[in-house]
């Protein structure tokens, strides 16, 4: 007994990094499922979150408290508990033909829709009221005002916190291991229990999560950069789009300048 455990300790003491690479197929299967779960749950949560945000801003005395309760309930339950509740407590107990993956995605979607709903609501409300008034004053309808004026500005405001939520989703998707979904953490656990190479296995798991979240970080950073507002006529950024647009604008300027003589009487400045 004593000797076996000593051997075990000695075996673990020798770090074998190639173990991670040798088991790459197992890790990749897990990662692939992790990515799919995170993407699908986040897509659903975004749509649902937008609905939550809009309904929470409704003036109805009945809708508003219901949505406030929705947000507070889903934010209040620990995710691990909620995953167990949705799968074992509801799906299995009441005999729904729900798979563990579906139950896990549902639990993640509901919780994240509450968080995202709050982020979207604050983003929409952060757009100055004068923006809506200006859009209405030129005859735009409420839906046009929302789509053309409020949404684009709110999108810029919510992009950084939404990126954080997406990183959170990738990490939190690991919690569905508890209902047997063979995502990254689950396959790592199985591999570690089978081979006793805990350090290598969990180092591999850590590295893979690090790669995933870093990729998302750079993706959202790219989105934020795309939101930077540059005057294509004066900036040195020369993307194909910027080149085409600045050529368009210069043509506009030339045409307007050429037509100036016929318009001279209605110019409002003397310069």
């Amino acid at each position: 007994m004593m000797g076996a455990s000593l051997n075990g300790v000695l075996a673990q003491a020798r770090f074998r990094p190639e173990f991670i690479w040798d088991n790459r197929d197992i890790f990749l299967d897990g990662v692939w499922l992790t990515v799919r779960i995170a993407l699908v749950a986040f897509a659903f949560a975004t749509v649902l979150g937008l609905a939550v945000a809009l309904l929470r801003m409704s003036k109805s005395w009945i809708v508003k408290p219901i949505m406030a309760a929705y947000v507070n309930v889903f934010r209040a339950i620990p995710l691990l508990v909620f995953v167990l509740f949705v799968y074992y407590g509801v799906a299995i107990h009441f005999g729904f033909s729900t798979t563990a993956i579906q139950a896990g995605v549902l639990a993640l979607t509901l919780q994240y829709s509450a968080w995202l709903g709050e982020i979207f609501r604050s983003g929409i409300q952060a757009v100055a009221d004068g923006q809506r008034q200006a859009a209405m004053s030129v005859g735009m309808s409420r839906p046009q005002t929302f789509v053309r004026v409020v949404m684009p500005q709110a999108t810029r405001i919510v992009t950084p916190p939404t990126g954080n939520m997406f990183i959170g989703m990738i990490k939190d998707s690991s919690l569905v291991y508890i209902i047997g979904v063979p995502e990254l953490l689950r396959v790592s656990n199985l591999l570690a229990n089978r081979t006793f190479r805990y350090f290598e296995v969990y180092l591999g798991t850590v590295i893979v999560y690090l790669i995933l979240t870093t990729a998302v970080y750079f993706l959202f950073k790219y989105f934020e950069q795309r939101f930077q507002l540059v005057d294509v006529l004066t900036s040195k950024v020369r993307s194909p789009f910027a080149k085409r647009r600045s050529a368009q604008l210069r043509r506009l300027q030339e045409t307007v300048t050429a037509n100036r003589d016929t318009e001279a009487s209605i110019r409002l400045t003397t310069e």
Binding site: T234, L249, L252, L268
Partner: peptide, 14 residues
């Protein structure tokens, strides 16, 4: 662009 020119801002349209 014509109206921006009327208020003297044709060069600022971008």
């Amino acid at each position: 662009a014509t109206y921006l020119d009327r208020v003297g801002l044709l060069d600022k349209l971008g």
